[in-house]
């Protein structure tokens, strides 16, 4: 059932914490080039799903296949990152003491080994790549600022920029607009659509208006499994989804 254009395939993934099933035989297929929105109430297992894909958490059972036939459950975080999977955390996580520029420079795809970074000098090509990302994430004027001094929304964008710098095939974005103003939320939706022109994206989000603005296929998670899948109108009309959201 896996097509050639499948990028990510989760099959019956189960994760338990002390007997509690955070993921319960979760299955999900993501096409190459697709953007998918994942919604669901708090505790549905959305972040845990990202933990499994990125190697932070090992599933008790189930398969996670990336690309042709790479089994991600056998790899650790740096190895998975090097395969081309980038992740944005729920809480913005940037390198606070470093400048915006340095944050992007450290994220640029390239040799990660100490023996390289110890002698590395910024190349002209690296400078151009950082410059281009600064334009995309609209932080060009802030390049010299300490990342810790940025506003919440700016940090979110910087982190998305760091993801872009990694040049991943797949971006996993966890609640990017939490705590953002309406204007920032709108700009973020635009930014993600722009990114999706060249890369596959999975966005976890609570904000329905934002998900609607993205206009992509939606997966609703509940109690560690998929409850419903389809267009935003389709899932909002699904009685099980209505019950989960209203029953809270």
């Amino acid at each position: 059932m896996i097509h050639n254009d499948t990028l990510l395939y989760l099959d019956g993934v189960t994760v338990s914490f002390d007997g509690f099933r955070a993921l319960n035989a979760l299955s999900l297929v993501l096409e190459r080039g697709e953007m998918r929105a994942v919604i669901g109430p708090n505790g549905a297992g959305k972040t845990t799903m990202m933990d499994v894909i990125t190697g932070k958490t090992r599933p008790d059972s189930g398969k996670v296949v990336f690309g042709e036939a790479t089994d991600l459950t056998r790899l650790d975080e740096p190895a998975i990152a090097s395969l081309g999977i980038g992740r944005k955390f729920q809480k913005p996580t940037v390198f606070e003491p470093h400048t915006v520029w340095d944050n992007l420079l450290l994220a640029l795809a390239g040799d990660r080994r100490p023996r390289f970074t110890l002698w590395a000098r910024q190349s002209a090509e690296e400078g151009e790549r950082v410059e281009a990302i600064l334009q995309t994430i609209r932080l060009a004027e802030h390049r010299g600022r300490r990342a810790g001094d940025l506003s919440h929304g700016q940090k979110q964008w910087l982190e998305i920029g760091m993801l872009l710098a990694q040049e991943p095939q797949l971006l996993l974005v966890d609640e990017p607009v939490a705590g953002m103003t309406d204007a920032e939320t709108e700009q973020t939706a635009e930014l993600l659509r722009e990114i999706n022109r060249t890369r596959s994206v999975v966005v976890v989000e609570h904000d329905m208006a934002f998900v609607r603005a993205l206009g992509v296929k939606v997966t609703v998670m509940h109690e560690g499994a998929v409850l419903s899948e389809g267009s935003i109108d389709h899932v909002s009309a699904d009685p099980r989804v209505v019950e989960v959201y209203l029953g809270r």
Binding site: P78, S82, V94, F95, L106, M162, Q166
Partner: peptide
């Protein structure tokens, strides 16, 4: 050096550096 910048990043947010491939 760039090594040192990675090191400081590891000091403050170790898991983030892993997801970047370090």
């Amino acid at each position: 050096s760039r090594f040192g910048k990675v090191l400081i990043a590891v000091r403050d947010t170790e898991s983030r550096t892993r997801f970047l491939g370090y």
